[in-house]
Design a binder for these strands. Structure first.
Lengths: 215, 215
DNA sequence: TGGAACCGACCGACCGTTCGGTCTACTCTA
DNA sequence: TAGAGTAGACCGAACGGTCGGTCGGTTCCA
């Protein structure tokens, strides 16, 4: 009944080559490299469905050793979602600083959102799946809602500028568009011979703005 | 820290009026009315984040009383997801029996999917969020994948019939389209003065097939 | 030799579940 | 029609087990 995936750590190899061009140091965790393992497991089993024992097993160290690197389970969650939030907010700042061109801004927003989603896949996945059971989770949800609203603002400005079809409520359109964008985390997996971030981003952009129908 | 939402049961009133046209019997749960409460809580806190104590509190009975109606937590999950699976599969059967018209079939599939999603919102939400931590959850995921593949089949047939634009991989297009459809569970809430199921279904259909751009 | 990295043993709290029992509405019978 | 019997709905207490987290070490390298 237990899927025993023993260790898949990827610890930091020779974190510093030091002064001497000497041999590699023993593999060791940093908070960030541990986070990488943790977020992967969170996304497999869900945050609430993941025990510290699960994390320890996946990291190849004991439960107590995890507490040497981070304060606890919640810190891993916060660090994880913050990484996604930082990337998304940085992108929005850039977009907001762009000159007029309201339709172009929305197109850029969609394209960039997909790229970030693919580049930071595990972290964005974690963010999108967060429930509101603890204060940290509710804070993440609030930050995420703020991002959704900035994006919805772009769509409304494009609609007000007359760049979008007029038979759709911009707020509804925005929900649907970024719903499609976010749904990418449910199936996208990177790898050679698979779709690239740009493949997906341009497919999303094409469907969203011009539709599936042949014309 | 605890959001104390005390009881919101909706128990079965006068489950039988008996021979006499007598007064209403005392409110009581059935497995189905209890399921309704449970699925709501599952969707708020996540399945793994919900304790039997949480369910008991929301139902206004004790933990042990829940076991009078159902075998356990997992049965509530199975019953919940099955309700969604049954509705979706029934719709697909109907669609498959339709005469040719491959593009029309896909349009119908999208429209009907949104309708079911809205009609059975809590149950479909539960299905879409299931992780694979137990055998029951993995079974639900497998059934869901089967549905996704039937839908993808419709899209591929429409593409093969030349009804869709040719610069998009039909498998990718299918993921995106039903990703948008499924994303509706993340924000849709029924209520007077809000969007109806048909509002959302036709908005999704319009965006998916004709895009957001003014033309 | 100091400190980072790690470990095994353990803690109190809470988990899903079980058990014995109570209360109440209804049915059956004398 | 009184009263015994039955069955369903529910409860309080407790079960074995797992949870997130702590503590007092040991190891090992700069």
């Amino acid at each position: 009944m237990n899927s025993q995936n023993t260790q898949s750590s990827q610890r930091v190899q020779d974190s510093q080559r030091a002064q001497t061009g000497a041999a590699a140091r023993r593999a060791t965790y940093t908070p960030d490299s541990l986070l990488e393992v943790a977020v992967t497991v969170f996304n497999e089993r869900g945050y609430d469905g993941t025990s510290m024992e699960d994390l320890a097993r996946a990291a190849g160290i004991t439960k107590s050793s995890i507490y040497h690197h981070v304060k606890g389970k919640e810190e891993l969650l916060t660090r994880g979602v913050n990484r996604a939030l930082d990337a998304l907010n940085a992108s929005l700042d850039t977009l907001e600083a762009l000159p007029d061109g309201e339709l172009d801004r929305v197109e850029q927003a969609v394209f960039r959102a997909v790229q970030i989603l693919v580049d930071e896949l595990p972290y964005v996945t974690l963010l999108l799946r967060v429930r509101g059971n603890t204060e940290a989770e509710r804070a993440a949800q609030a930050s995420r809602r703020a991002i959704d609203q900035r994006l919805a603002g772009f769509v409304e400005r494009a609609a007000a500028a007359g760049a979008l079809r007029t038979d759709l409520d911009p707020r509804l359109a925005s929900r649907l568009v970024f719903g499609m964008v976010n749904s990418v985390v449910e199936w996208y997996r990177p790898g050679p011979g698979r779709w690239s971030a740009d493949d997906v981003a341009s497919a999303v952009t094409h469907v969203v703005f011009d539709g599936l129908r042949r014309r």
